[in-house]
Write a protein that binds this DNA or RNA. Structure first.
Lengths: 232, 232
DNA sequence: ACCACAGTATGGTCAGACCATACGTCGCCA
DNA sequence: TGGCGACGTATGGTCTGACCATACTGTGGT
């Protein structure tokens, strides 16, 4: 027969569901505060431990941020940090070998190609300026670590050109995940001249409004950076 | 001066870090069991509550799965379910309006275009067979809910063609997120004839090995499905 | 050989306590 | 009157110890 297993909901799942419902019904939004853990526990008729497990889940998903003490900033506040959650997710699954660096790098290629294709010729002067500044800082970088830092800034700005926060957050998480590899790869290359040329080509294609040239430049750059696992 | 705030790590964060280290060092992999909560608490010199908060985080990220009782399947077992974590993340952030359906739909378009471009002409006979079966089931679907179910099967198979588990998992999460919209949109359309034509075109382009035709077909299909927020 | 029952290890939940933190408030003193 | 220091208090963070529900494991009887 069509029997369904009794879906036992754990207390903390119920807490999450009710918080979610209040977000939808009461129109709670980023910046709003949730009731304290003790109050929430009493209102929902569960123990504080269950409330805390729910908080931990929501915090992991980048939806709340908790602060001890007293005052306007204390307690659990609704936030929006999907990138942190995605980064944790990628790090753990890569560590478990349930995702490979190849897949991560490939996803990155996809996002950046999409972003530059849709941004070529449409980037604002401020965005172009940010790209130029990042390139400038890369040129002046003294160490591989510093270079990678500004390289990340460049590529995150590129992802931001898509105007899509989900893609931007994913890109940020991907960068965090490959950061160690990136530093090692820059060390290995010795020089960053080739990478700098790539960045300039990418910038010019975007500024010139040539989608295919930008996509090609990105592809070449990432192919150089991930010869078998790489940086930037 | 370059003072950094003392980053006081919470107990459960330390637990996560140590579990992560053991995954890396001891080569733990999917299917392996973690020690029981009580034992872990004693070994790490923290309370069971802190261990449980760490477990909740890892479970949220799709890395472990807990089962009560006794025996080989009981306890916390390492798993790999990134899609569930991604779906939770999307649902909450869309609910908070920190992500829009437009961004979700756009991301979906990007993944599917990438997948078909890279799969055209390279899909295995089994994969093509799965696509044909999904189309067949869509044709025989009696209700919009049923149609959307098999439509999801088709599109997930398409995403799987990329050979990239991260993209496949993301696609799965995106589908879950737009599912309600999809059912409503099919109701609104009244007929599924146009959608069926789209699916056949996509299939043919993949089978024929024509990347650009496949990409165009996908784009047209999704444009039809998301006129302002849609299905399929 | 089979089966029923007690034992036991597991996660799930709860209650209550204490600590650390950071703001609010009150009152003292200049 | 203004400032400033001590105390009060609400917040999250942690711990302890207990009990429940679940599901295997072993044991003993038939």
């Amino acid at each position: 027969m069509g029997w369904e297993p009794v879906r036992r909901t754990r207390a903390f799942e119920d807490v999450i569901a009710q918080i979610e419902r209040r977000i939808a019904d009461d129109g709670l939004t980023v910046g709003d505060r949730l009731p304290g853990e003790r109050q929430l526990a009493e209102q929902l008729q569960v123990s504080r431990a269950s409330v805390r497990e729910a908080m931990r889940v929501l915090e992991t998903l980048g939806v709340i941020s908790s602060q001890a003490g007293r005052g306007p900033d204390a307690g659990a506040v609704l936030t929006s940090r999907p990138a942190g959650a995605l980064a944790d997710l990628l790090r753990l699954h890569v560590g478990l070998s349930s995702l490979s660096m190849r897949e991560v790098a490939e996803t990155r290629m996809m996002i950046e190609q999409w972003a530059v294709r849709h941004a070529a010729g449409r980037a604002s002067p401020e965005q172009l300026e940010r790209l130029r500044e990042a390139i400038g800082r890369m040129e002046r970088a003294a160490t591989p670590e510093e270079f990678v830092l500004h390289d990340a800034e460049f590529h995150l700005t590129v992802a931001g050109l898509s105007g899509n926060r989900l893609l931007a957050a994913t890109m940020q998480a991907l960068r965090v995940t490959v950061r160690t590899y990136a530093v090692q790869a820059v060390h290995r290359l010795g020089t960053t001249d080739l990478l700098m040329d790539d960045h300039r080509k990418i910038y010019e294609a975007i500024a010139a409004g040539d989608p295919e040239a930008a996509a090609t430049a990105i592809a070449g750059h990432l192919a150089r950076a991930y010869p078998g696992d790489g940086p930037s």
